[in-house]
Design a protein around this nucleic acid. Structure first.
Length: 772
DNA sequence: GAGTTTGAAACT
DNA sequence: CAGTTTCAAACTC
């Protein structure tokens, strides 16, 4: 390869140039785990528009030995990236475009020092948090070695999973990638052989062996969770290492494949991406850290929350792999800590299963689905993805894994719904992407990510027993990620909206403990927050939702706004509320019932109308009879939209030319203006008072002079009032209009003030002269 | 705050 | 699908 492979470079995002994130790369990683920047002129950097080559192998090597490093170095050199420099890949969450990966070779990021290591990938999210994931660029085949995953059963398992067309097998360790939902070329994440050497043994300490393991990266709307094959005798540490690697692989692959998928969809030839892990090098131990996701300019954002379980072994070396990935519409943040729970394999299970416990990455969807879910390692709590035909909701179910049985058996009460359309469906809607015009600016906070486009914020919540989790949520601002405590054990993830976390932090009594006792069929589900009345999630997030007052519905019916909006009840006035984590089973059932009754029950009612019609309109239309559609009883009116032809209302007055509506609107506008004016006046008055006090302070300290207002004595006031009254009389006698009268009075008042000020100044001067 | 009105959701 | 009931929010007093 004479030049940097266009394929490789095309995979890399322009966001890599985001220097802010890269500059934050920790320098304290002598092994080169930190991502290193490279001068931009070291090698040509093909733009994304460069035509990709027919075949592409991308290898991310993290388990590389020194020899492998050298090889990788050579590879990098051959690629023109520059010898001795790792390939930094920065994924900026602040960019709205589809995630792309591109070697960070810009001089602007040269502040990041180059190390000897060729490994290391930096994933940054708008500078909020940069995470380093180890991987190496392999010279051969344009490979990026991400992870070493040995799995002789990967192929079979993948085949059994029904994703054979999208899976490209590789000898030895592999990371299987599927392109479900797209008819593009298969993408293979190739994992180089590393022999029997435990790739992460050094990193994880007591890793004894590398259990056969494969990870499947699913690209497309029909996200599926694939089981991770693990040996029965695997030790917990090994599993932890594997899980960690899985996270690395899945996340990085997620990023890479996202890009690949984009290109693949364009009719590009198939590509092979080999992923492996650098050898015990680049793991950043940032346990306990909060990772804020910066979904700026991203249509949606996803946060992966990792919470250490109580079973964590403190003696274990804390390994966290935070990866923030900003994909076109999502931002994924993953922080992985060691997990002591085994992950079971489920090879040969029915290929038609839609729910498969495993670590998986789903990207995109059929027809450009906007929902992606990253489910990093589900250790004890396995993850089940449920797809519901016809729905755009993305459901993720975390099921407490009971070792081998859980992964192998996918049937049962929680059996996945059949995917018929490729659209993602689940037991719980996560977030339907929706374009909404009404976007209220949301203030940026240190831990809150602001999106400039309608987005859904999701958090991946741990599916572990909650007692340990609870403290982590109490102080979390929306959009933040909980990190596992050092040495954290079981870690599970679920994709949930940020509002969920917000609710949790607002609800100190919330506990997830109930999930721990759930059978596999009744695992934790994720919570979804749907746009309300056409308003974006971010907008609705900015204001507290009204508490419900349900008494009979247990908040498990659509009567309950909380439930209807995909939220848990929080600070509500409801009675016998089941809309909480403690009643997940019932809640799940209720959700399913609602979806059975109306697959779009959780979709926003206010959506885009037909072409030529208003941008926003009620999806079903109202059915008002008495309110004239001019009261909040009417859902159209409540949403501040006109009734449309699909409404079945009687005596509707909620149309464009309706005089009643106009009157109401004017009144509402006037009231709003008044409120604004009053607020502004109060603010201004407050400011003036403060300013006045500030200005009077020097007078006090200026040497004993009287304060100006002390000259406004009772006599002065009376005299002033008399002057003003006199002016009023004059105006009245002259039959001046009110405006003119007011002007005259004000002028007189000004004169009075001037005289007072003048007298005050004169008195002060006299005083000063006397003192002298 | 209690009672009434209203229309969506749920039910038959 | 239509009619009825249930329900909780909106509204009124």
């Amino acid at each position: 390869m004479d030049v940097v492979s266009p394929e490789l470079t095309s995979l890399l995002p322009d966001e890599i140039m985001d220097t802010e994130a890269i500059e934050d790369i920790p320098q304290s990683q002598p092994d080169g785990s930190a991502v290193q920047s490279q001068p931009s002129d070291d090698a040509p950097v093909p733009m994304e528009t460069d035509t990709p080559v027919a075949s592409e192998h991308l290898s991310l090597c993290s388990n590389a030995t020194s020899a492998e490093h050298a090889k990788a170095l050579a590879a990098v050199t051959a690629l023109g990236i520059g010898s001795g420099s790792p390939l930094p890949i920065s994924i900026s969450s602040t960019l709205p475009s589809l995630l792309t990966l591109k070697p960070a070779m810009a001089a602007s990021i040269a502040t990041t020092k180059t190390t000897d290591s060729l490994t290391g990938t930096s994933f940054s999210t708008g500078g909020l948090q940069r995470l380093t994931a180890p991987f190496t660029i392999s010279a051969a085949n344009h490979q990026i070695i991400l992870n070493k995953v040995a799995s002789s059963q990967a192929t079979e398992a993948a085949k059994s999973a029904g994703i054979s067309p999208q899976i490209i097998k590789q000898e030895g360790q592999k990371l299987l990638v599927t392109t479900i939902g797209k008819s593009g070329q298969p993408i293979v994440l190739q994992l180089p052989h590393t022999g029997g050497k435990p790739g992460l043994s050094q990193t994880f300490g007591d890793n004894k062996s590398q259990a056969p393991q494969f990870k499947v990266v699913t690209i497309g709307g029909r996200s599926e969770l694939k089981p991770v094959v693990g040996g029965a005798g695997n030790q917990l540490t090994t599993l932890q290492a594997q899980q960690l690697k899985t996270v690395q692989v899945t996340l990085i692959c997620f990023v890479l494949l996202r890009r690949v998928l984009t290109q693949t969809s364009a009719g590009l030839p198939s590509r092979t991406i080999t992923l492996s892990e650098p050898h015990n090098s680049n793991m950043q131990s940032i346990s306990g850290k909060k990772i804020a996701i910066s979904p700026l300019k991203t249509p949606s954002k996803v946060t992966v929350v990792s919470v250490a379980s109580p079973t964590s072994n403190a003696s274990h070396k804390s390994l966290t792999l935070p990866v923030n990935v900003a994909l076109g519409q999502q931002i994924l943040t993953v922080q992985q800590s060691t997990s002591a729970s085994p992950v079971k394999l489920a090879t040969g299970h029915p290929t038609t299963q839609n729910i498969k416990p495993m670590q998986s990455v789903t990207m995109g969807g059929v027809g450009g689905s906007q929902f992606k879910t990253i489910i990093p390692l589900a250790s004890q709590p396995n993850v089940q993805q449920i797809q519901v035909p016809g729905s755009r909701f993305h459901y993720v179910r975390l099921v407490t894994a009971t070792t081998a049985s859980s992964s192998g058996h996918l049937s049962g009460p929680t059996k996945p719904m059949v995917v018929s359309t490729g659209a993602v469906r689940m037991s719980v809607p996560i977030v339907p992407a929706q374009t909404i015009k009404q976007m209220a600016p949301k203030p940026l906070t240190s831990a809150t990510v602001v999106t400039t486009t309608p987005t859904q914020q999701r958090l991946i919540m741990p599916a572990t027993p909650l007692p340990q989790i609870q403290p982590n949520f109490t102080n979390l601002p929306p959009g933040t990620v909980l990190a596992p405590a050092p040495g954290g054990g079981n870690v599970g993830y679920a994709v949930v909206p940020a509002q969920y976390v917000t609710q949790l932090q607002q609800t100190p009594f919330v506990t997830l403990a109930s999930s721990s006792g759930f059978p596999a069929s009744a695992g934790i589900q994720t919570q979804a927050r749907l746009p309300l009345n056409g308003l974006s999630t971010s907008e609705t997030t900015s204001r507290p939702r009204k508490p419900c007052n349900c008494t009979k519905s247990q908040c498990l019916k659509l009567y309950c706004d909380c439930f209807a909006n995909g939220e848990f009840c929080n600070n509500c006035n409801c009675n016998n509320c089941f809309n909480n984590l403690e009643h997940e089973t019932e809640r799940l059932k209720a959700i399913k019932t609602c979806l059975d009754r109306n697959p779009e029950a959780f979709k926003p009612k206010i959506g885009k109308g037909k072409e030529g019609e208003s941008d926003r309109r009620h999806s079903k239309g109202c059915n008002c009879k008495r309110s004239g559609c001019l009261k909040n009883y009417c859902e159209c009116y409540e949403a501040k939209i006109m009734c449309s032809s699909i409404c079945k209302c009687i005596g509707c007055k909620n149309f464009e030319e309706s005089p009643e509506r106009k009157t109401l609107m004017h009144l509402a506008d006037a009231a709003e203006v008044r409120v604004l004016q009053q607020t502004a006046a109060k603010t201004k008055l407050s400011s003036q008072i403060s300013d006045l006090l500030m200005r009077t302070t020097p007078v006090i300290s200026s040497g004993g002079g009287r304060l100006p207002y002390t000259f406004v004595t009772k006599e002065v006031l009376e005299a002033t009032c008399e002057c003003l009254m006199e002016q009023a009389k004059k105006a009245e006698q002259a039959h001046q209009p009110q405006v003119e009268a007011e002007r005259m009075i004000l002028e007189e008042f000004g004169h009075c003030l001037m005289r007072i000020i003048s007298s005050a100044g004169k008195a002060k001067a006299d005083c000063a002269s006397i003192n002298c």
